[in-house]
């Protein structure tokens, strides 16, 4: 799976979890850019991402991503 593929799948997960079809993600996107992406929904998103990609992050990793790009890198490194 390449980066663009992961990005588009992430976008679907975000749209479902945040119940907002207008969410558009790019590598530079941060939590500030997405309405409703806060500390609470972050955990919810992580759980959905872990289920979808069948992987498991550490607590440290979950709190370390600064933008979507780093999250994508995180997913690739676990694959």
């Amino acid at each position: 799976m390449d980066k663009a593929e992961i990005l588009s799948q992430l976008q679907e997960i975000f749209r479902d979890t945040l119940d907002d079809q207008e969410v558009t993600l790019a590598y530079e996107t941060t939590a500030n850019d997405v309405e409703g992406w806060d500390s609470l929904t972050h955990i919810h998103l992580v759980v959905s991402i872990e289920k979808h990609f069948k992987l498991r992050f550490t607590a440290k990793e979950i709190q370390s991503w600064k933008n979507i790009g780093e999250l994508v890198e995180g997913i690739i490194s676990k694959k």
Binding site: S39, L40, H42, I43, V46, V47, A59, I62, Q63
Partner: peptide
């Protein structure tokens, strides 16, 4: 509290 207590806890209990 959210950053240093709630978030780590909710990550821990996320399953």
């Amino acid at each position: 509290m959210t950053e240093y207590v709630f978030t780590p806890l909710s990550i821990h209990f996320r399953d």
